[in-house]
């Protein structure tokens, strides 16, 4: 039933178009569109297969030696990166873990003795600054 409807609609459409233009003109129009060079369709599938083959992405197959070399380089890069990162992390953590409790009193005293003259220089430089209020300075140092 539906197919009949479609067929009738199609016939009506065709008639409408053929009323506008002659059937002959329409046929000739289509004939000119269907003009193809000789044996074009016979050669087309082969031409197409060639173009598809040319468009395919190239895959490189490595020799076993090449594969091993690439694997060795990869392992070397990964392992050396790991060792380098691991070393720098352990050094940093060693630095952080030193606390005052780990340093003996003798070491601290020796450090203070050695750097006493530095403290003197700091004090005198502050005291003889032209704009420094000496009283305030003494107050601060007493506090």
């Amino acid at each position: 039933m539906e197919q009949k409807k479609i067929d009738t609609a199609l016939e009506n459409d065709q008639l409408m178009v053929e009323q506008l233009f002659s059937k002959e003109a329409l046929a000739n129009y289509d004939k000119s569109a269907s003009e193809v060079p000789a044996s074009y369709f016979e050669a087309f599938p082969e031409k197409l297969q060639q173009r598809i083959a040319n468009n395919k992405p190239k895959v490189f197959f490595l020799t076993p030696l090449g594969k091993m070399a690439i694997a060795a380089i990869f392992l070397f890069v990964v392992s050396s990166t790991f060792i380098f990162l691991n070393n720098s992390v352990s050094k940093k953590s060693a630095m952080v873990s030193i606390s005052m409790q780990d340093i003996s009193n003798d070491e601290i005293e020796a450090y203070v003795d050695a750097n006493e003259w530095m403290a003197d220089i700091d004090w005198s430089s502050e005291a003889f600054k032209p704009d420094t209020e000496v009283e305030q300075f003494y107050k601060d140092s007493i506090d």
Binding site: F21, A25, N28, K31, S32, E35
Partner: peptide
């Protein structure tokens, strides 16, 4: 060039 009749006015109009 084809065997079809020479292009008439209506064919040009159609085109």
């Amino acid at each position: 060039h084809t065997d079809a009749p020479k292009s008439s006015e209506i064919q040009i109009k159609l085109d």
